[in-house]
Deep mutational scan, measured.
Amino acid sequence: MASQGTKRSYEQMETDGERQNATEIRASVGKMIDGIGRFYIQMCTELKLSDYEGRLIQNSLTIERMVLSAFDERRNKYLEEHPSAGKDPKKTGGPIYKRVDRKWMRELVLYDKEEIRRIWRQANNGDDATAGLTHMMIWHSNLNDTTYQRTRALVRTGMDPRMCSLMQGSTLPRRSGAAGAAVKGVGTMVMELIRMIKRGINDRNFWRGENGRKTRSAYERMCNILKGKFQTAAQRAMMDQVRESRNPGNAEIEDLIFLARSALILRGSVAHKSCLPACVYGPAVASGYDFEKEGYSLVGIDPFKLLQNSQVYSLIRPNENPAHKSQLVWMACNSAAFEDLRVLSFIRGTKVSPRGKLSTRGVQIASNENMDAMESSTLELRSRYWAIRTRSGGNTNQQRASAGQISVQPAFSVQRNLPFDKPTIMAAFTGNTEGRTSDMRAEIIRMMEGAKPEEMSFQGRGVFELSDERAANPIVPSFDMSNEGSYFFGDNAEEYDN
């Protein structure tokens, strides 16, 4: 993207840094990872977990959730003011799984939030270390993106479920800051804005008074975040219109849905970061690795190297396929839920299948599930090659597409044709070009129609051997075009429920 120079890199967003050079960025990201790792080690000690239990991804998720809940100030305040039966607002906890007599047992633990905050700050040299908290939120978000298709949420806001490739980060909490905003897809931002506008339509006082002023500035800020994701002048001009509207209503909703559809071809720039579970960072720190000293990046080879040398386990339900569970977590670790499966298959070195073909449910185990038949197995999170994460949407291309997802959002900077089903997408653009945004709409449609099938995206960008740390010898991959490109292809993934 041309304006790259004016933006802070995501590592800076990730670490609240002012302008830093590459070495400083690597050190501050490393410091953040160190903090998460030290916190995780301490929690495993508190909970008396064995090494194996500490490497269980379900335990990692519970521990991450506990610290996120302990620092969720708004919710904590709300819980104190609106006490609900049987919930102690000062405590947080969740299921911890232990191996007892050759069987997995679930144990519900409860801790004072104050105590968890103390352990977290102690692991982070006394700081609140917001960057580390956001990092864990993005890992949870990436896992949700890989596990669930947001059909219901899309339909509720009037969008087409086939636009799911635009929904990265749709389950990120509001408090995820600049680093969170960077990884949100165009569809996620559109959905947040539509929800806001709908509230304004239904509630006369939404934009009024002292609160209304705050609401208005939040609305304009979200519009600017979305505008910054678009790469064409016409899309940005249309966002200006939406932002400046005196009284946002149905016309703005129409414009936003139009823009979301246009992003299936004229893709937005959305950041991709490899955020790993805390149970990967903990053992690495415990083994003596100093992330701050060595430096770390979320968008280069580092996460690949770390996963190459990590042992992570997962509980497996009786009829689940461990290899499929591994694929789910591998995609989440690489922030690749909406990437082209052919690119992923090449990088991973084994075939990556669409969601609907995987015999696996989510990673988390519900409290009512029976533990008797639970097994555990090693997650295979290694890769054959590594590639640089991208934040450009890439230019655009036609490809055989599917009944489910009709476009992709690249996660890796790797040369390819970008699949999208042009006739299906263009069919949504018939007729409606009147109104105050008509010239911009016409211009956007013209650009979409001009998108050429034979153009290559990320020209000359390749993948790298894991021994090639400096990215000196790019390998331009070859793809098996007979395979499906979309992950949520004609899909039956479970729906995400809060």
Rank of each mutant, 00 (worst) to 15 (best):
V100K: 06
S262H: 07
G404Y: 06
A129C: 10
D34R: 06
T157I: 15
T437P: 05
M43I: 11
L379W: 02
D302G: 00
V463F: 00
N417F: 05
I41A: 09
Q399E: 03
G288N: 08
K273P: 08
L193R: 00
T62K: 01
G54W: 05
T378E: 04
V352M: 10
N397A: 13
S383T: 15
E24G: 00
M440G: 12
L79K: 06
M136P: 02
M331E: 06
S457N: 15
V29D: 13
I425R: 00
Y289I: 14
S269F: 01
D290R: 02
G5C: 14
Q399R: 15
A27T: 10
K103V: 15
R74F: 07
T232C: 11
A233N: 11
M481H: 05
D72R: 14
L358Q: 04
D340P: 02
N124H: 10
A332N: 09
A218Y: 04
L307E: 11
R461W: 11
D421A: 15
G485D: 02
F39H: 02
S165E: 02
E455F: 07
D72S: 05
V312S: 06
R106T: 08
T45F: 05
R461M: 06
Q231G: 14
T232L: 10
T188I: 04
L307V: 11
A178V: 12
S413F: 10
V186D: 01
N395T: 12
P410C: 15
F429R: 03
L307N: 01
S9R: 00
G185Y: 09
M331C: 11
V343G: 05
S467Y: 04
L306T: 14
A131F: 00
I444N: 00
C279T: 09
T23R: 12
G356P: 07
Q459W: 12
S377P: 05
E114H: 07
G485S: 10
R446A: 12
P277T: 12
W120T: 02
G362P: 05
G169P: 04
H140T: 10
K229D: 04
G300C: 06
M447Y: 02
L56S: 12
I33N: 06
E320L: 04
E14L: 03
N224I: 08
G30W: 08
G169R: 04
E375C: 06
G37S: 15
T45G: 05
E18W: 09
L166H: 10
G485L: 07
D51H: 02
A237L: 04
V29M: 11
G431I: 14
D255A: 02
F71Y: 15
L47F: 01
N473S: 15
D203V: 04
E53V: 03
M371Y: 03
S3E: 00
I197L: 02
R99Q: 09
K452L: 09
E369H: 15
I444E: 03
Y111D: 05
S467Q: 06
S377H: 03
E292I: 13
S217T: 15
D439E: 04
E494A: 11
N368M: 13
Q231N: 05
Q405T: 08
R389N: 11
M440H: 12
Y296N: 08
A471E: 01
G228A: 10
M159C: 09
R384C: 11
G300P: 06
E320G: 12
E80W: 10
M448I: 15
A234F: 03
R199S: 07
W104I: 14
S478V: 03
I138R: 01
G86V: 00
E375K: 08
I138N: 06
P173E: 09
N124S: 14
E244W: 03
R208M: 08
R106N: 08
N144C: 11
A332S: 13
M238C: 08
A366E: 10
M163F: 09
S345Q: 10
A403T: 15
S482R: 05
N21R: 12
D240K: 06
I96V: 14
V242L: 04
A387Q: 06
Q459V: 02
E434R: 02
S165F: 06
I41T: 14
G435T: 07
G187C: 11
R267L: 06
A493C: 02
M196C: 07
S3H: 12
Y313E: 04
V312M: 15
S392E: 05
K214A: 13
E220P: 03
P283D: 09
D439W: 00
R221V: 04
R355N: 10
D421V: 14
C164Y: 02
Y289Q: 10
L193T: 13
S310E: 02
S141E: 09
R243F: 11
I475V: 12
T147D: 05
E115S: 08
Q149T: 09
E244K: 10
G54A: 14
G93R: 05
Y313C: 05
M105Q: 10
T215N: 12
L193C: 09
K229F: 13
R106V: 09
A401G: 04
G132V: 04
G288F: 13
I25A: 01
T134P: 06
L466W: 15
G349C: 07
K214H: 14
T146E: 01
M1S: 05
L298P: 05
V414R: 01
P419Q: 08
E115K: 10
A179D: 02
L166T: 06
V280I: 15
V190D: 05
S69D: 06
S407H: 08
E210A: 05
S392R: 05
R150E: 12
E454D: 07
L143Q: 03
R441K: 09
R106G: 07
S376Y: 07
L266P: 00
G132A: 11
K103I: 08
M331P: 08
G460K: 13
G431D: 02
G394P: 03
G132D: 10
H324K: 01
A85C: 12
G93N: 04
G180H: 02
A251W: 07
D302P: 15
M13F: 04
G462T: 06
F39K: 04
E18A: 09
A373V: 11
N124F: 13
Q241C: 04
G485R: 15
I475S: 03
V29L: 03
N124C: 12
Y52P: 00
A22R: 14
T146L: 04
D34S: 12
G362I: 04
S245P: 15
R261N: 05
G177R: 05
A237F: 01
E24M: 05
G249W: 11
G485P: 00
K227G: 01
Q168S: 14
P318C: 13
E81P: 02
S269E: 03
R204Q: 12
E320Y: 02
I25M: 15
I445D: 02
V242A: 08
A451T: 01
T134C: 14
I119L: 09
R106I: 09
V352W: 06
G94V: 02
L358S: 02
I119T: 11
K198Q: 14
S287G: 06
L143E: 02
V186T: 08
F206L: 11
K91Y: 05
P423H: 13
I347T: 09
K198A: 08
E494V: 06
P419K: 12
G17H: 02
A181K: 09
I444Y: 04
C279Y: 12
R461F: 00
E455M: 08
S377R: 15
L47N: 05
E320R: 09
R99E: 09
A153S: 11
K184E: 04
L56V: 12
E320V: 08
K351C: 08
M371C: 13
I197A: 15
Y10G: 01
F291Y: 14
M374P: 01
S467G: 12
M374E: 02
T15Y: 02
M239L: 07
K90A: 07
P161A: 15
F412R: 04
D112W: 07
M159W: 04
N124A: 08
Q235H: 06
I194P: 03
A332E: 05
L341T: 14
I347M: 12
G132S: 15
P419C: 10
V280T: 12
R8L: 11
R38S: 09
D340K: 02
I388R: 06
R199N: 05
Q122D: 00
Q415W: 09
A2I: 00
G282A: 15
S176V: 07
L166I: 07
E369N: 07
L418R: 01
Q415F: 12
T437G: 01
V183M: 07
L344Y: 09
M191C: 05
G450N: 13
S165N: 15
Y385G: 03
Y78M: 02
R342I: 02
Y97A: 08
R8N: 00
T62H: 07
E434F: 00
Q364G: 05
R355L: 15
W104G: 02
E455V: 11
Q311S: 14
M163G: 04
S165V: 03
A129R: 14
